[in-house]
Computed example of a mutant assay.
Amino acid sequence: MTEWLTREEALARLNVRPQTLYAYVSRGRIGMRPDGADPRRSQYRADDIAALATRRARGRSPQAIAESAIAWGEPAITTAISKVLHGRLVYRAKDAVALAATATLEETAGLLWASGTPVSFASLTPSTVRESGTPTAFARLSALAAAGRPSLGRRPAMLQQDGASATSVLATSFGASPGAEPVHERLARGWSVEAAGADLIRRALVLMADHELNASAFAARVAASTGSPIAACLLAGLATLTGPRHGGAGAAVIALVEDAERMGPDEAVARWLAHDRPLPAFGHPLYPEGDPRAGALLPDLDIDDGLLRLRDAVLAATGMHPNVDFALAALTLNLRLPADAPFRLFALGRSVGWTAHAVEQVTSNRPIRPRARYDGPVGMG
Rank of each mutant, 00 (worst) to 15 (best):
L89Q: 14
Q63Y: 09
A57I: 04
S132D: 00
V97K: 07
A10K: 06
G349D: 02
E3L: 12
A80D: 10
L124N: 14
A109E: 05
T128D: 11
R245V: 15
R311L: 04
L333D: 02
N334R: 12
G250N: 04
A50W: 07
D266N: 13
P18N: 15
R45P: 00
I368R: 02
A224E: 11
A139N: 05
I70W: 04
L112K: 10
D276L: 10
Q161T: 14
P150K: 09
D48M: 07
E106C: 08
P278F: 15
A224K: 08
A143H: 04
R13V: 13
T102A: 14
A69Q: 13
L345E: 07
A232G: 13
A109H: 11
L301K: 00
S115P: 05
S192Y: 06
L105M: 11
E267P: 00
V16K: 05
L241M: 14
P182D: 13
D304I: 01
N323S: 10
L205C: 08
M320F: 13
R336I: 02
A255I: 03
A251Y: 08
Q43V: 10
I368K: 03
R293F: 00
P244M: 12
A114W: 02
S173G: 10
D375G: 01
R203P: 00
S127Q: 06
P278M: 11
A329Y: 00
T242P: 01
S165I: 11
V16H: 03
P288R: 11
A64C: 07
N15M: 10
A93M: 14
L124I: 13
S165R: 15
Q160E: 13
G376I: 06
L310F: 01
S142W: 00
P118L: 11
A255W: 13
A57L: 07
A329C: 13
A358T: 02
C233S: 14
A270K: 11
L331N: 04
T134V: 12
G247F: 03
H321F: 02
S61G: 09
H275W: 05
P118K: 09
V253K: 08
F282Y: 15
A330L: 07
E67V: 11
H275T: 10
F346V: 00
A64Y: 07
A294K: 00
M380F: 09
L273A: 12
G116I: 03
R271W: 08
A252T: 10
R13S: 09
A236Q: 08
S173C: 08
P39Q: 12
V25L: 14
